[in-house]
Each structure stands twice: as C-alpha cells, then as structure tokens.
Computed example of a mutant assay.
Amino acid sequence: MNEKEFELNDVVEMKKSHPCGENKWKIIRMGADIRIKCLGCNHSVMLPRREFSRKIKKVLERADS
C-alpha cells in the first residue's frame, strides 16, 4: 500500500469523525506513537503510527503552507 505523507502540525482528515462531529485533526506529536488533537473540541488522542496510517483519509493542510 502507498505510504501517506504527513508531518508535525499538519491538519488531517480521518476516516471516521470524532463524537463531537468534527473530522479535522492536528498532528501535535510524532514518534513511534502519533498524538492528534481534535480541532472541534480540543480533545487529544494518541495512536500507534501503524494504526494512524490506516485510519487517516487525507492531509487537508500542510504545516509549511
């Protein structure tokens, strides 16, 4: 499968939306695990990198732009 490219501070869209109704997440920590923060309610979630790669749909905004 094609490896998706994402970096710190990117805004991403996940396959499933958060219970608050928002589907935009900001990547706030990267390593073996990735921490993302919901842009609707500011709740943060930590996922293993492999699971995050499966659940990401697309990158909406790049950090550098």
Rank of each mutant, 00 (worst) to 15 (best):
E13N: 05
M46T: 04
C41R: 07
G31S: 10
R29G: 08
M30D: 05
K37F: 06
I56G: 02
E5S: 02
S17L: 11
I27R: 00
H18D: 12
E3T: 00
E22Y: 13
R54A: 09
R62G: 03
G40P: 01
N42G: 04
L47S: 05
F6K: 00
E3C: 01
L39I: 11
L60F: 09
R29Q: 12
N2W: 02
F6D: 01
V12C: 08
R50Y: 08
I28H: 08
V59W: 00
K15M: 11
R35L: 08
L39G: 10
K55D: 09
M30P: 02
K57T: 05
S44C: 12
F6T: 00
H43G: 09
R49E: 12
E51F: 15
E5T: 01
E51P: 05
S17I: 05
M1L: 08
E61F: 15
M46N: 10
R35V: 14
L39E: 09
L60W: 02
K15I: 11
V59E: 02
N9L: 15
V45S: 11
R49F: 14
S65G: 15
L60S: 07
I28A: 09
A32H: 05
E51L: 13
M30T: 06
D64G: 10
L39F: 09
K37T: 14
M14K: 05
K4N: 10
R54S: 06
G40Y: 02
I34E: 00
K24S: 09
S53P: 02
F52E: 04
E3D: 06
K26S: 05
C38A: 11
I28W: 05
F6S: 01
M14A: 14
R62C: 04
P19L: 12
V12A: 02
G21R: 15
C38W: 03
C41W: 12
H18E: 06
D33A: 15
L39C: 07
H43Q: 10
K37G: 07
V11C: 09
K24V: 07
F52S: 05
N23E: 08
I56V: 15
E3I: 00
G40F: 04
K16H: 08
E5A: 02
K58S: 15
K15P: 14
L47N: 13
L39K: 07
M14P: 15
K16P: 03
D10S: 01
N9I: 03
C41D: 09
K15T: 14
W25N: 01
V12G: 06
S17P: 13
C20D: 10
S53N: 03
D10A: 13
I27C: 00
E7M: 15
E51M: 15
K55M: 10
H43S: 06
V59C: 02
K24E: 12
K26R: 11
R49V: 12
R54C: 03
C38L: 07
K26F: 02
I56Q: 04
E7Q: 14
E22S: 04
N23W: 13
E3W: 00
E5F: 00
V59P: 01
I34A: 01
D64S: 13
R29N: 09
R29T: 11
D10I: 05
D10R: 01
R35D: 04
S44I: 06
E51C: 07
F6G: 00
I36V: 11
R62D: 04
M1V: 11
E5D: 04
F52C: 10
M30W: 01
G31V: 08
K58F: 02
H43L: 11
D10K: 01
M30E: 07
K24H: 13
S65H: 14
D64C: 08
